[in-house]
């Protein structure tokens, strides 16, 4: 197992190998993401029963929750990739970390927008300083910080390292921010209706959510791969394998 992991790691470090292997993965990932999205949305929008309190507006859950979960784990992945670059100087890891930032921020934005829209029928206003929405907003700010420093640094290596350090500091901070925001929230508005917390979800409601979650993760993998391939194409443009590929 260990040997296999080590081998995989060394292969992942080769841009050429990554570029060639993902060529074959892309159609499959696209199919899986598309099919699960269609199945999840049809089940969620057409077959899941309406919520007894919120009515049909709860159907926003099928994009809001997967986007929110993904936005948080994408930040972790970005930090891990950044750490791999800091420690082992693996170029591929730096490119992956770089491309995750805008994608993660996009999903964070989706979670915030859908949360705000969902708030209108539930609470009567577009924005409530609810614990989850507030900590998503803070996460979006953290993403903005990483993207800002990526663009500000003059040297490429410096931008990768600075973004990685900032992402790692952010990862240590995320649980503290989440905890403090939740604590602050219970202080100021005790026991309001939360959007997604349910004692137990009906299976007909839960299944589409799980399917959408899978779909979101696969879509995320696809987007990361597509953008990483562009990074490879740009950085390796003077290598012979890229030139050979272009000529054939």
């Amino acid at each position: 197992m260990w040997q296999w992991l080590k081998q995989l790691y060394h292969r992942m470090g080769s841009p050429k190998w990554f570029y060639e292997i993902t060529e074959r993965w892309i159609p499959w990932l696209a199919i899986v993401a598309g099919v699960t999205a269609v199945v999840g949305l049809v089940l969620g929008l057409l077959y899941a029963p309406a919520d007894y309190q919120q009515g049909d507006s709860f159907r926003i859950i099928y994009i809001h929750v997967p986007a929110a979960i993904l936005a948080q784990s994408a930040y972790m992945m970005m930090a891990v990739a950044g750490a791999v670059y800091l420690i082992w100087r693996m170029k591929m890891a730096a490119w992956v970390a770089k491309v995750i930032a805008p994608i993660g921020a996009s999903f964070c934005l989706i979670a915030l927008l859908t949360g705000a829209i969902w708030g209108k029928p539930t609470w009567g206003t577009w924005w409530v300083w609810d614990a989850r929405l507030t900590s998503m907003l803070m996460l979006l700010f953290l993403y903005f910080g990483v993207m800002a420093i990526q663009q500000a640094m003059e040297s490429e290596d410096g931008s990768y390292k600075a973004a990685a350090i900032l992402a790692l500091v952010g990862v240590v901070n995320i649980p503290i921010i989440k905890y403090s925001v939740e604590w602050w929230n219970t202080l100021h508005q005790p026991a309001t209706l939360t959007l997604t917390e349910k004692p137990s979800m009906h299976p007909d409601m839960l299944w589409p959510l799980l399917i959408m979650l899978v779909s979101t993760y696969v879509l995320f993998a696809l987007l990361v791969i597509l953008r990483t391939r562009n990074e490879i194409l740009w950085h390796e443009r003077k290598r012979s394998w890229v030139k050979k590929m272009m000529e054939s």
Binding site: M138, F144, G145, A152, A162, L166, N173, S180
Partner: peptide
């Protein structure tokens, strides 16, 4: 430290650090 070598790091520094200050501010 991250923005030390940038000529106009002041605003960027604020962007990077403000979200990290939130828990301190809250408590």
């Amino acid at each position: 430290a991250l923005t030390a070598s940038l000529s106009s790091g002041g605003l960027l520094l604020t962007l990077l650090i403000l979200p990290l200050y939130i828990p301190v501010l809250i408590f």
